[in-house]
Design a protein around this nucleic acid. Structure first.
Lengths: 205, 205
DNA sequence: GTCTATATTCCGATAGAC
DNA sequence: GTCTATCGGAATATAGAC
């Protein structure tokens, strides 16, 4: 920090803020360096001064975004929590993250879809999450008669879809339900509890 | 094809096939007319002869895609079927559509997200689906004690997420579950039944 | 209808003054 | 560090021969 006022943010931060907004809206291919410069209130050449190229600026944004979206599955599902506690944490934390960063899910998934199939190795930091503990816990609950028979993969896909899908289809949902963004976010707040209940009820014996 | 038999398809169809493939992969902004021409095995200029511009070619593909993705909600939810029959039709038909056209959900949602908020009016052919019948049916089941209390919006979002989300995250799921595309499709076949059961169980009192 | 060649616009990146 | 001006390549689109 130097001698500027506290409310002043540095140029690099201004660029990152602007780049996030534009890349989230238009994706890598659709974003223009000029758009980002305008949004940041600076000149196009400055972007290249701080970040060498468009690709490098994009990679900065993408990595931080993917870092909020993907490792969460890992942390939660491989923790030492009980089976039911995991499901609740999963719903609450994922939806909370998405409320705070509503554009990240679509941004990450959309960009992943344009990449070659082997691109994901990088995202998982070398090793994909180990689902064996979660699977074991599920099987134990089934054996104990607390949970009806269900495949781990089918359950996990449902959990992810229930929590994340609304943020991928917000424009359509807003139109379908005839609500605005504020009302949508209210729905998502309520959804933390609704999603947990829905899933727990769906699996209980 | 080596000779001119009935299996020969016209140039326009070759272009549409190629355009679908490229636009599905890369989106509007990322697709190149040269890519489409190469994929179709023809010259770039021919694309402009059949479709005036890139935008117009894109619109052709987008409209047919959105037409398979969006009106389905409408048809199913506004039909005269019983409440439970609707849920089952919804899951089965949506997943069947997505198995047949696995790239359409991501393509449509991704492109919708880059458009201004008022863009969706066109997609709903003027009028968004009327959810009042489905909502009334749900409320009747709740009153009768067959279904536990749940908001129609929360239920519908869950149904959509459960059915569609896997097709939006296939690369990640393939990596997460360590499966290939063929195994993924097998999972989706099983999911028609699994999704229906999951939802019915989640709402039953 | 299909091609080659070219016009035209756009955009990422750099040079160089301050 | 920040700007203006510009280069050079890429992409859409058109002209015109066959």
């Amino acid at each position: 920090m130097d001698n500027h006022t506290q409310t002043d943010i540095g140029t690099e931060q201004k660029i990152l803020l602007a780049a996030r907004k534009i890349f989230f809206q238009k994706g890598l291919a659709g974003a223009r360096m000029q758009d980002i410069a305008n949004e940041a209130g600076i000149n196009k050449a400055l972007l290249h001064y701080y970040f060498r190229s468009k690709d490098q600026l994009f990679e900065t944004i993408f990595k931080e975004s993917a870092g909020r979206f993907i490792p969460r599955v890992k942390q939660i599902l491989t923790s030492e929590d009980s089976f039911y506690q995991k499901i609740e944490s999963f719903c609450t934390e994922y939806i909370t993250m998405a409320i705070t960063n509503p554009f990240i899910p679509m941004f990450v998934l959309s960009e992943v879809n344009n990449k070659p199939d082997d691109f994901l190795q990088k995202l998982f930091s070398g090793s994909p999450p180990d689902l064996s503990l979660f699977k074991k816990q599920l099987e134990n609950e089934i054996k104990a008669g607390h949970v009806r028979p269900i495949q781990m993969e089918q359950l996990l896909m449902s959990m992810l879809g229930i929590c994340i899908f609304p943020f991928l289809s917000r424009p359509i949902l807003n139109s379908l339900f005839n609500i605005n963004n504020e009302q949508f976010m209210q729905l998502m707040e309520e959804r933390k509890k609704a999603a947990t209940e829905f899933i727990l009820q769906a699996i209980r014996q």
